[in-house]
Amino acid sequence: MAILEKSGAIIAALEDIGEATAQELADTVNEPVSSTYRLLASLSSIGWVDSKFRRGYFRLGVRFVRIGSRLEDRLSVRDACTAALVSLRRDTGATAFLCFRRGDAAVCVERLDGRDVRSLAMRLGDSLPLYRGAAPLAILAFLPEGEREAVLERFAVRRRDGEDVPGDKVLRDAIDLIRARGYSISDEDVTPGIGAVGAPVFNHRGELEGAISVSGLRNAIILGPPDVATLTVEAAADASRALGFGEGLENS
Protein backbone atom coordinates (compact mmCIF):
# COMPACT_ATOMS: atom_id res chain seq x y z
CA MET A 1 0.00 0.00 0.00
CA ALA A 2 2.96 2.31 -0.49
CA ILE A 3 0.96 4.05 -3.21
CA LEU A 4 -1.85 4.93 -0.81
CA GLU A 5 0.62 6.13 1.78
CA LYS A 6 2.26 8.47 -0.72
CA SER A 7 -1.14 9.63 -1.97
CA GLY A 8 -2.09 10.34 1.63
CA ALA A 9 1.03 12.44 2.10
CA ILE A 10 0.27 14.40 -1.08
CA ILE A 11 -3.31 15.02 0.03
CA ALA A 12 -2.16 16.14 3.46
CA ALA A 13 0.41 18.48 1.89
CA LEU A 14 -2.17 20.01 -0.46
CA GLU A 15 -4.65 20.32 2.39
CA ASP A 16 -1.99 22.24 4.24
CA ILE A 17 -0.57 24.55 1.56
CA GLY A 18 -3.42 24.69 -0.95
CA GLU A 19 -1.37 24.52 -4.12
CA ALA A 20 2.04 23.01 -4.95
CA THR A 21 4.33 22.07 -7.84
CA ALA A 22 5.27 18.47 -8.61
CA GLN A 23 8.78 19.22 -7.34
CA GLU A 24 7.47 20.45 -3.99
CA LEU A 25 5.23 17.41 -3.67
CA ALA A 26 8.09 15.07 -4.66
CA ASP A 27 10.10 16.55 -1.80
CA THR A 28 7.19 15.96 0.59
CA VAL A 29 6.92 12.27 -0.28
CA ASN A 30 10.68 11.75 -0.78
CA GLU A 31 10.31 10.44 -4.31
CA PRO A 32 11.89 11.35 -7.62
CA VAL A 33 9.90 13.94 -9.56
CA SER A 34 9.26 11.46 -12.38
CA SER A 35 7.43 8.91 -10.25
CA THR A 36 5.63 11.70 -8.41
CA TYR A 37 4.35 12.88 -11.79
CA ARG A 38 3.01 9.43 -12.50
CA LEU A 39 1.25 9.37 -9.15
CA LEU A 40 -0.16 12.87 -9.70
CA ALA A 41 -1.42 11.85 -13.15
CA SER A 42 -3.28 8.94 -11.57
CA LEU A 43 -4.67 11.13 -8.80
CA SER A 44 -5.81 13.64 -11.46
CA SER A 45 -7.58 10.96 -13.45
CA ILE A 46 -9.66 9.91 -10.45
CA GLY A 47 -10.34 13.56 -9.61
CA TRP A 48 -8.42 13.70 -6.33
CA VAL A 49 -6.06 16.41 -7.56
CA ASP A 50 -6.57 19.11 -10.13
CA SER A 51 -3.94 20.83 -12.23
CA LYS A 52 -6.12 22.63 -14.74
CA PHE A 53 -6.21 26.06 -13.22
CA ARG A 54 -2.55 27.01 -13.10
CA ARG A 55 0.02 25.26 -15.26
CA GLY A 56 2.48 23.22 -13.24
CA TYR A 57 0.54 23.54 -10.00
CA PHE A 58 -1.57 20.92 -8.28
CA ARG A 59 -4.35 21.32 -5.75
CA LEU A 60 -7.11 19.17 -4.20
CA GLY A 61 -9.69 18.05 -6.76
CA VAL A 62 -13.43 18.65 -6.96
CA ARG A 63 -13.87 14.99 -6.00
CA PHE A 64 -13.31 16.04 -2.39
CA VAL A 65 -16.13 18.57 -2.66
CA ARG A 66 -18.44 15.85 -4.02
CA ILE A 67 -17.62 13.23 -1.38
CA GLY A 68 -17.51 15.72 1.50
CA SER A 69 -20.95 17.04 0.67
CA ARG A 70 -22.43 13.54 0.52
CA LEU A 71 -20.97 12.88 3.96
CA GLU A 72 -22.36 16.18 5.25
CA ASP A 73 -25.81 15.30 3.86
CA ARG A 74 -25.73 12.01 5.78
CA LEU A 75 -24.73 13.55 9.09
CA SER A 76 -27.71 14.55 11.13
CA VAL A 77 -27.16 16.81 14.11
CA ARG A 78 -29.81 14.89 16.03
CA ASP A 79 -28.15 11.53 15.40
CA ALA A 80 -24.75 12.96 16.25
CA CYS A 81 -26.09 14.18 19.61
CA THR A 82 -28.00 11.04 20.64
CA ALA A 83 -25.10 9.22 22.31
CA ALA A 84 -24.14 12.35 24.24
CA LEU A 85 -27.72 12.88 25.44
CA VAL A 86 -28.03 9.24 26.54
CA SER A 87 -24.85 9.40 28.61
CA LEU A 88 -25.78 12.80 30.03
CA ARG A 89 -29.09 11.43 31.29
CA ARG A 90 -27.37 8.32 32.65
CA ASP A 91 -24.68 10.32 34.49
CA THR A 92 -27.03 12.94 35.94
CA GLY A 93 -30.36 11.15 36.28
CA ALA A 94 -31.90 14.36 34.98
CA THR A 95 -33.72 15.23 31.74
CA ALA A 96 -31.49 15.84 28.70
CA PHE A 97 -32.50 18.13 25.81
CA LEU A 98 -31.28 19.11 22.38
CA CYS A 99 -32.45 22.48 21.07
CA PHE A 100 -32.01 24.24 17.73
CA ARG A 101 -32.36 27.92 17.06
CA ARG A 102 -35.44 29.07 15.21
CA GLY A 103 -35.53 32.82 14.77
CA ASP A 104 -35.22 34.44 18.20
CA ALA A 105 -36.22 31.25 20.02
CA ALA A 106 -34.83 27.79 20.71
CA VAL A 107 -36.99 24.80 19.84
CA CYS A 108 -36.68 21.41 21.54
CA VAL A 109 -35.93 18.66 18.99
CA GLU A 110 -34.93 15.85 21.37
CA ARG A 111 -35.76 15.10 24.99
CA LEU A 112 -34.80 12.14 27.17
CA ASP A 113 -36.71 12.19 30.46
CA GLY A 114 -34.81 11.76 33.73
CA ARG A 115 -35.59 9.70 36.81
CA ASP A 116 -36.73 12.16 39.41
CA VAL A 117 -38.99 14.84 38.06
CA ARG A 118 -40.80 15.42 34.83
CA SER A 119 -40.83 19.07 33.99
CA LEU A 120 -43.67 20.10 31.74
CA ALA A 121 -41.63 22.85 30.15
CA MET A 122 -39.86 22.22 26.84
CA ARG A 123 -41.60 19.17 25.48
CA LEU A 124 -40.64 18.08 21.95
CA GLY A 125 -41.45 20.91 19.57
CA ASP A 126 -41.85 23.49 22.37
CA SER A 127 -39.78 26.61 22.23
CA LEU A 128 -38.44 29.28 24.56
CA PRO A 129 -37.16 32.74 23.68
CA LEU A 130 -33.36 32.90 23.51
CA TYR A 131 -33.24 34.98 26.72
CA ARG A 132 -34.78 32.29 28.96
CA GLY A 133 -33.64 28.74 29.85
CA ALA A 134 -30.28 27.03 29.71
CA ALA A 135 -30.25 25.78 26.10
CA PRO A 136 -31.68 29.02 24.65
CA LEU A 137 -29.12 31.13 26.55
CA ALA A 138 -26.26 28.85 25.44
CA ILE A 139 -27.39 29.36 21.82
CA LEU A 140 -27.70 33.13 22.25
CA ALA A 141 -24.25 33.41 23.83
CA PHE A 142 -22.48 31.47 21.08
CA LEU A 143 -24.21 33.01 18.07
CA PRO A 144 -21.82 34.88 15.77
CA GLU A 145 -21.50 38.43 17.06
CA GLY A 146 -23.44 40.08 14.23
CA GLU A 147 -26.41 37.77 14.61
CA ARG A 148 -26.30 38.08 18.38
CA GLU A 149 -26.42 41.88 18.19
CA ALA A 150 -29.38 41.68 15.80
CA VAL A 151 -31.23 39.39 18.25
CA LEU A 152 -30.47 41.76 21.15
CA GLU A 153 -31.82 44.69 19.14
CA ARG A 154 -35.06 42.84 18.48
CA PHE A 155 -35.27 41.94 22.19
CA ALA A 156 -34.93 45.65 23.01
CA VAL A 157 -37.97 46.35 20.82
CA ARG A 158 -39.94 43.55 22.50
CA ARG A 159 -38.94 44.92 25.92
CA ARG A 160 -40.26 48.35 24.96
CA ASP A 161 -43.47 46.70 23.80
CA GLY A 162 -43.97 45.35 27.30
CA GLU A 163 -42.58 41.80 27.04
CA ASP A 164 -40.81 40.54 30.14
CA VAL A 165 -37.33 40.49 28.54
CA PRO A 166 -34.39 40.81 30.96
CA GLY A 167 -32.56 44.15 30.73
CA ASP A 168 -29.91 44.60 28.03
CA LYS A 169 -27.11 44.85 30.62
CA VAL A 170 -28.34 41.71 32.38
CA LEU A 171 -28.37 39.79 29.08
CA ARG A 172 -24.94 41.04 28.00
CA ASP A 173 -23.41 40.13 31.37
CA ALA A 174 -25.01 36.68 31.15
CA ILE A 175 -23.62 36.24 27.62
CA ASP A 176 -20.11 37.20 28.74
CA LEU A 177 -20.25 34.79 31.65
CA ILE A 178 -21.57 31.93 29.50
CA ARG A 179 -18.87 32.49 26.87
CA ALA A 180 -16.17 32.61 29.55
CA ARG A 181 -17.37 29.46 31.33
CA GLY A 182 -18.49 27.53 28.25
CA TYR A 183 -21.91 26.74 29.71
CA SER A 184 -25.13 28.45 30.76
CA ILE A 185 -27.12 28.09 33.96
CA SER A 186 -30.87 28.52 34.35
CA ASP A 187 -31.68 28.83 38.02
CA GLU A 188 -35.47 28.51 38.32
CA ASP A 189 -35.99 31.11 35.58
CA VAL A 190 -38.32 28.85 33.57
CA THR A 191 -39.96 26.67 36.23
CA PRO A 192 -39.85 27.15 40.02
CA GLY A 193 -37.72 24.45 41.68
CA ILE A 194 -36.06 23.44 38.41
CA GLY A 195 -32.48 24.26 37.40
CA ALA A 196 -30.69 23.54 34.14
CA VAL A 197 -27.25 23.69 32.51
CA GLY A 198 -26.68 24.16 28.76
CA ALA A 199 -23.68 24.02 26.41
CA PRO A 200 -23.29 24.71 22.67
CA VAL A 201 -22.83 22.16 19.85
CA PHE A 202 -20.71 23.13 16.81
CA ASN A 203 -20.20 21.55 13.39
CA HIS A 204 -16.91 20.90 11.56
CA ARG A 205 -16.72 24.53 10.42
CA GLY A 206 -17.10 25.74 13.99
CA GLU A 207 -20.62 26.99 13.22
CA LEU A 208 -23.20 26.82 16.01
CA GLU A 209 -25.70 23.99 15.42
CA GLY A 210 -27.66 24.08 18.68
CA ALA A 211 -27.32 23.39 22.37
CA ILE A 212 -27.52 20.42 24.71
CA SER A 213 -28.99 20.97 28.15
CA VAL A 214 -29.95 18.99 31.21
CA SER A 215 -32.61 19.97 33.71
CA GLY A 216 -33.74 18.66 37.10
CA LEU A 217 -34.33 19.65 40.70
CA ARG A 218 -32.51 22.89 41.35
CA ASN A 219 -30.11 21.73 44.06
CA ALA A 220 -29.15 18.50 42.30
CA ILE A 221 -28.33 20.37 39.09
CA ILE A 222 -26.63 23.46 40.47
CA LEU A 223 -24.91 22.06 43.55
CA GLY A 224 -24.39 18.42 42.57
CA PRO A 225 -22.78 15.98 42.91
CA PRO A 226 -22.17 15.02 40.17
CA ASP A 227 -20.68 18.11 38.55
CA VAL A 228 -23.48 18.63 36.05
CA ALA A 229 -21.82 21.61 34.34
CA THR A 230 -18.70 19.61 33.46
CA LEU A 231 -20.77 16.63 32.31
CA THR A 232 -22.88 18.89 30.07
CA VAL A 233 -19.86 20.60 28.55
CA GLU A 234 -18.31 17.19 27.86
CA ALA A 235 -21.52 15.85 26.32
CA ALA A 236 -21.76 18.89 24.02
CA ALA A 237 -18.09 18.49 23.07
CA ASP A 238 -18.70 14.80 22.23
CA ALA A 239 -21.65 15.77 20.05
CA SER A 240 -19.56 18.44 18.29
CA ARG A 241 -16.79 15.91 17.67
CA ALA A 242 -19.33 13.54 16.12
CA LEU A 243 -20.09 16.36 13.65
CA GLY A 244 -16.40 16.77 12.77
CA PHE A 245 -15.61 19.71 15.05
CA GLY A 246 -11.91 19.78 15.87
CA GLU A 247 -11.27 17.04 13.32
CA GLY A 248 -8.24 17.76 11.17
CA LEU A 249 -7.80 21.21 12.71
CA GLU A 250 -4.10 20.48 13.07
CA ASN A 251 -3.95 20.87 9.29
CA SER A 252 -5.67 24.20 9.01
Partner: peptide, 19 residues
Protein backbone atom coordinates in the same frame (compact mmCIF):
# COMPACT_ATOMS: atom_id res chain seq x y z
CA UNK B 1 -17.05 4.47 7.01
CA UNK B 2 -15.63 7.70 5.63
CA UNK B 3 -13.73 9.70 8.22
CA UNK B 4 -15.03 13.14 9.18
CA UNK B 5 -11.82 14.52 7.73
CA UNK B 6 -13.59 14.53 4.34
CA UNK B 7 -15.62 17.50 5.57
CA UNK B 8 -12.44 19.51 6.01
CA UNK B 9 -10.90 18.22 2.80
CA UNK B 10 -14.02 19.38 0.96
CA UNK B 11 -13.79 22.85 2.51
CA UNK B 12 -10.06 23.03 1.75
CA UNK B 13 -10.59 21.90 -1.84
CA UNK B 14 -13.14 24.68 -2.32
CA UNK B 15 -10.95 27.26 -0.62
CA UNK B 16 -8.02 26.39 -2.87
CA UNK B 17 -10.05 27.34 -5.96
CA UNK B 18 -8.94 30.93 -5.65
CA UNK B 19 -10.44 31.90 -9.00
Amino acid sequence: RLSLRWLHLADNARASMRE
